[in-house]
Design a protein around this nucleic acid. Structure first.
Lengths: 189, 189
DNA sequence: GCTCATAAAGCAAATATTTTGCGTTTGTGC
DNA sequence: GCACAAACGCAAAATATTTGCTTTATGAGC
């Protein structure tokens, strides 16, 4: 049984959704963001524009929807044997993904959505990933595993901040510093 | 000599820009984001829609432009006598501003801009503010003033992350923790 | 399996918007 | 002052969006 969305899992509805998403992905590969239009997507997907407008509201929400999908982690994070290593491995891959041209566009599209539920969903991906790595470290018996919150504030937040505002500094070297610092701090408050 | 933008500082151009910005602000106070339209703004500002389209491209860029202005710090940060105090005071005010309804909208509008120069400009405000507070602390002779980069990663980044993705946790209490941690860490890398 | 109720899609006309070409106004540099 | 070019106004044309109504297909109850 495939993973389903909340739109009447059944038949036509799901088919339309898939066709529209697919059409967006194909067009995005060829056209820049502001050449993309709803009527174009509709034609390629073989649906009427009004279908798209009624379901997604406008182009911004549609592309945001597609981009959130794109950002969902598809594979389990690699196990390097240490929390620091896992964080670095995941982070480097994430940075590479998000500094790429399509990655940057996906990020922009998600941020442009008026529905902040979408943005939240997207950041939950990173947070639950942190939780996974943390559990893994605990079950290995690693010492000094920081609380989840510290991983989020110490690693995910700076990374995200750089990706959004200043991607020149979204580098693997900086990532290493964030990790070291997050794992080094012993106590506070 | 007032601060000028890069649009032919002179007369008409500047007047039009001001009229349009003003019209956007007035309409935003009354209408929700997706009731706002370019023709409406144009009428209230007393200009033709084509003027707006040619100058800003579309509504998203226009409202982003207005919002960046709105986010420019207008007054000097208060001096509390310590770096920690200054950070807390500034941060609390910033959080309050940005969790308010108009603040959230401004944030969204800026993030929705396709021009990431705009986003960058907006984050430079915070960074240069950090630099100011840091200089102030140094000239007071405070011990253990962390490098600018650590203030950005340790305080601004988590705050921004929370504001964007999970504003429930954008609180003064968390802010305090970020500050304590940023100032406490002695070394890394 | 069959029927019914209903959510979602199609279609097309009505609106609203965005784009564009061209003439006019208005700062800016000489 | 004068000439040049940038920015604006206007209006027609091209697009995109909304909306009312019809048709189709799914899921529930029998």
């Amino acid at each position: 049984m495939p993973i389903k969305e909340a739109v009447r899992p059944g038949g036509r509805s799901a088919r339309v959704q898939e066709a529209v998403h697919q059409a967006v992905r194909e067009l995005q590969a060829v056209k820049s963001r502001d050449e993309l239009t709803v009527p174009q997507v509709a034609e390629l997907a073989g649906v009427t524009p009004s279908t798209i407008y009624r379901r997604w509201g406008n182009l911004a929400e549609l592309v945001a929807d597609v981009s959130v999908e794109r950002m969902r982690p598809d594979e389990d994070p690699v196990d390097t044997g240490t929390l620091a290593g896992d964080l670095q491995a995941w982070g480097e891959q994430y940075l590479e993904e998000m500094t790429s041209v399509p990655g940057q566009r996906a990020l922009n599209d998600v941020m442009a959505s008026a529905d902040n539920g979408r943005r939240e969903r997207c950041c939950r991906y990173s947070e639950s990933l942190m939780a996974t790595l943390r559990e893994r470290a605990l079950s290995r018996g690693e010492a000094a595993v920081p609380p989840l919150e510290r991983l989020v504030d110490g690693v995910v937040a700076p990374m995200t901040y750089r990706l959004l505002y200043d991607r020149e500094s979204a580098t693997a070297a900086n990532l290493r510093r964030w990790i070291v610092r997050a794992l080094a701090v012993e106590d506070a408050d």
